[in-house]
Simulated scan of single mutants.
Amino acid sequence: MSLYKRKGSSIWWYELKDASGKRVQNSTGTEIKEHAQELHDRLKVQFWEQKRLGVKARRTWHEAVIRYLSEKSQKKTLETDRSHLRWLDSYLGSRHLDEINRDLIADITKARQQSYEIARKKGPPRKIDPKSSTVNRTLEIIRAILRLARDDWEWITVCPNIPMKKEPTKRVSWITREQAETLLSHLAPHQQSMMRFSLETGLRRRNVTHLEWGQIDLERRLAWIHPDQAKAEKAIGVPLSKEAVLILRQQWGQHAVWVFPYNGKPITQTATKTWRAALKAAGLPEGFRWHDLRHTWASWHAQDGTPLHVLQELGGWASAEMVQRYAHLSTQHLAHFVDRRVGLKLVGGTDVFPTVQLLAIKKG
């Protein structure tokens, strides 16, 4: 029978064969038989059109998410994607992909900007005011899945344009050598070692906290990051300075595997209460992150005259664009151009105050 009720239920269910001949059973969600029959007949026509006329089956957001997570199972930021997808579930849920339009995207964008609270084990809940970057990461997930559904899976023929929120251009956050020494003096010994090594190598947080002795050759003064550990998924060779080698020798013997262990295990969290207390004691902004030590390392290199293409290779950046944020700190190659002018000139080209006269005026 095509329509039926389950024992003890007042809801009508349907049973049909889809375009592939597979039996499909599902609830109609209604107690009214006429409405259930209408849904049944509509689905029957859709299955017939798919089989006989080649009409594509309508796919849901849930189906797309399942396939996306399966295909992206090796993605490093997959857990972050899952977090965004969980938030989106209440808005997209079982909707069909062809129902996702600009109006719905606008509603999602507006909702994502709303403040919310996160409960804490102790103390009052933490209030979160989502930034434009957070909103954009959520929208990017929607865009990525819809484009896969259109271009790769051929589930839909069109997808809506998804405008991104404008993100403010951030200044590179770095500290001076004096500030770094002050911060170090307020950290625990195990944090001091990691921070000093980070400032010597510019390695990302996890590449330091999970560094293994098998990745280090002290004789050749070299460390390396495997492709699966690197953000750009390319192996990185890390030349070690004398200071970096000294730090590693001091760590030798603390653990058979991990270079910077804490209680026998690699550190998983650096934004700790101790870190925040050290920032406050050192007079540094509370928003200064461990990752900003990498920015500090790069900034110092740029100030010391390291060419940007060399800095790119040292830092393992995939593109030169990522290194340009430090270009304003490196102006040595421009210095000799500054002194080429001999004085102020009129439109006609005559010197107004030649350099010799300016010097005489200053002395007078």
Rank of each mutant, 00 (worst) to 15 (best):
E313Y: 08
D351M: 11
D107V: 06
D292A: 00
E38F: 04
S185V: 02
Q324K: 12
P168H: 08
K51I: 07
R86E: 14
V259T: 08
Q269A: 10
I66M: 11
G348C: 14
L187V: 04
H190S: 08
Q215I: 01
N101R: 08
L92T: 00
W48S: 14
N263H: 08
E34T: 15
P168F: 03
I118A: 11
N136F: 09
G253S: 09
S185G: 07
K44Y: 08
S83L: 07
V342Q: 13
L88G: 09
S10N: 15
R67N: 03
G29D: 05
T157S: 12
A119R: 14
K131Y: 11
E79D: 15
A256V: 05
Q332L: 13
V24P: 04
Q312Y: 08
G8I: 01
W155S: 01
V323R: 03
H333V: 08
Q46S: 14
L88N: 04
E243F: 11
K363G: 12
R126N: 10
E286I: 11
N161W: 12
D129W: 07
L308K: 05
Q332I: 13
I66G: 06
E321P: 02
W290G: 07
I118H: 11
M1A: 15
K110N: 06
V257D: 11
K33R: 15
Q254W: 13
Q25E: 14
P227D: 10
T268W: 00
K127P: 00
R6G: 09
F47A: 13
E34A: 15
S299Y: 02
W213M: 05
